[in-house]
Structure formats: structure tokens, C-alpha cells
């Protein structure tokens, strides 16, 4: 089963949930840290990287000798990454999404695609967890190709947990696509609810089964609970606002190891997530 852990708001506890869920699973599982702008699951699962691979994306290169300046490449590029401005078009690699449309459309075959490095993939092994994460290079703004490269490492048939980036934009879409269930982590605050509502709209647009986990429950109010009831969204778990959890987190420890009394809660959560998928399948 592929479970994606997402949230609208940042800092709600996606990674905390992902690493503890993975550890509580207690069987071989892949953890795909798709927050490639700041991967952090490895901080809780200390292990040396086993393998590091450079990831590239294709960007156009124009052969000025072949170009007749027809401008078709600029016309087809919806990202404004290539623009005709004289004899040969100018390319802006940082705007390019690597679709290859310009090279495809060019009647003179003056454009070829060349690889541009965007980041690395690193893999770790911690107990029964195979951790794969992407690390976007500094100065690169195009996360989705690297996120897809991380997800390409998923072994067919193996259970996997995807730690998605925060927000509701392209990187999140790239991370949750293909998941069989999505867990939205939020906190019981006005900000938490506001961004949760955006994330709910996103997962509904993808017709993915999903439920909500409230983190730091008791620290705010009950507006998230009321929202979930009104929207008929399963409230899968509430992680209490327990200072000891924050202390364990600050040490880089796992809740299920530092505070074993929470272990049962994570196992129960896992069962409920699997139930989400079954409900949809039924």
C-alpha cells in the first residue's frame, strides 16, 4: 500500500507522522521523503547514505546555425522558458519544465535536449525502513522532476510511505499522485484549518481516499474537529500536545521508541488508513 502524508500548512508534523508510522509498521517498508527542498526524515533515522545518484532534467539547447528564427519554440512554450529575440531564441533553463515541446515542434531540428543537474537522490537503510530522499540543488526551483525521480525508486508491490512537501502546489501534486490513501496532518488552529481546507480541495480533485490527523491536539480549539464532522472526513487520530513528544522530536528521537505508550496509537492509525482504501475499493 502507498500512503502519502501531506498537509496544507508546513510544520504540522508530516515527517513526525511518516517516520513513526514507518517504524511502527515493523516490516520492510519504503519511506520516500519527497520534501526535496528540505528533506528531514533521515534526521530521525540515523544511517549513512548507501547510495547517491545525480538527477538531471532535459533542457533545450539551440543550434544557431540551423535556426531560421521561425519562433515556433517560443509559441509552444507555456512557461516562457524559450523566447525568440533575434536570429536564435534565448533559453531560460530555470523556467524550463523539461517537457521537450520546443525540440519536438522545431521544423529545422535546431533544438536538442541536454541534461541539467537539479539535485541528488540518496538512500539509507534504518532497521526495516528503506529511506529514499531527494535533495534539490541550491538555486534550483523545479522540484517536481526530482520528486518523480524519488518516486521512481518505489519497488513494485512493496508498502511505501510518501512524506510530501507542504502546500498545495505542483510539488505536492507530484508527491501524492499514485498514492492509494492520503493522510492530511493539521493542527487545531485557525491557520491549521485554513490550510487543511485547501489540502482537502486538492485531494478531492484527485479523488484519493483521505483522512485527517490532528497533531498537538488540545493546544488550540475544536474547529478542525467540527470541520471534519461537517465535511464527513474521517478523523483518523489525534496526537496530543504532549511536551515529552516535543522533547523527543528535538532530540531527533522517534515517538514510538522514546514513548512506547504511543505505539498502539500508531498501529491503530495504520489500520484506519488501510480501512480508507478498503472503503473506496468496496
Amino acid at each position: 500500500m502507498i500512503i502519502a502524508i501531506a498537509s496544507g500548512k508546513g510544520g504540522t508534523g508530516k515527517t513526525t507522522l511518516a517516520v513513526n508510522l514507518a517504524r511502527a509498521f515493523d516490516a520492510d517498508i519504503q519511506l520516500l521523503d519527497c520534501d526535496v527542498e528540505e528533506p528531514n526524515a533521515h534526521l530521525f533515522l540515523p544511517a549513512e547514505p548507501r547510495e547517491r545518484t545525480v538527477v538531471t532534467m532535459p533542457i533545450p539547447e539551440v543550434d544557431a546555425r540551423l535556426c531560421d528564427g521561425c519562433g515556433e519554440c517560443a509559441r509552444v512554450c507555456r512557461y516562457n522558458a524559450i523566447v525568440g529575440a533575434g536570429a536564435a531564441p534565448l533559453v531560460f533553463p530555470e523556467l524550463c519544465h523539461g517537457c521537450g515541446g520546443c525540440a519536438y515542434i522545431c521544423p529545422r531540428k535546431a533544438i536538442r535536449e541536454v541534461p541539467k543537474r537539479i539535485g541528488v537522490i540518496e538512500t539509507f537503510r534504518s532497521g526495516k525502513i528503506d529511506l529514499v530522499h531527494g535533495r534539490l540543488d541550491v538555486g534550483v526551483a523545479m522540484a517536481p522532476p526530482l520528486i518523480r525521480a524519488v518516486k521512481d525508486r518505489r519497488r513494485n508491490g512493496a508498502p511505501a510511505i510518501i512524506d510530501a512537501p507542504p502546500g498545495t502546489s505542483c510539488p505536492v501534486v507530484a508527491a501524492i499522485q499514485g498514492a492509494e490513501a492520503v493522510v492530511l496532518v493539521t493542527e487545531p488552529t485557525p491557520f491549521g484549518l485554513h490550510d487543511l481546507a485547501l489540502a482537502v480541495d486538492l485531494v478531492r480533485a484527485f479523488r484519493l481516499p483521505f483522512g485527517v490527523v490532528v497533531n498537538r491536539a488540545g493546544s488550540g480549539d475544536d474547529r478542525v474537529r467540527l470541520f471534519c464532522a461537517r465535511e464527513k472526513i474521517p478523523l483518523l487520530a489525534e496526537i496530543p500536545d504532549d511536551r515529552r513528544i516535543a522533547e523527543a522530536y528535538a532530540r531527533g528521537a522517534l515517538i514510538v521508541e522514546a514513548l512506547p505508550e504511543y505505539r498502539a496509537g500508531f498501529l491503530d492509525l495504520r489500520a484506519k488508513i488501510e480501512g480508507l482504501r478498503r472503503e473506496v475499493a468496496a
Partner: peptide, 15 residues
């Protein structure tokens, strides 16, 4: 309203 590349396209328009 462009998501990105507004300056590039505006310059292209001016040209």
C-alpha cells in the same frame, strides 16, 4: 497573470 516568465514575455512583446 503568468505564473512565471512575465518579464521574458513582456520583453518579447516590446521587441
Amino acid at each position: 497573470q503568468a505564473a512565471q516568465g512575465a518579464g521574458v514575455q513582456a520583453a518579447s512583446t516590446v521587441a
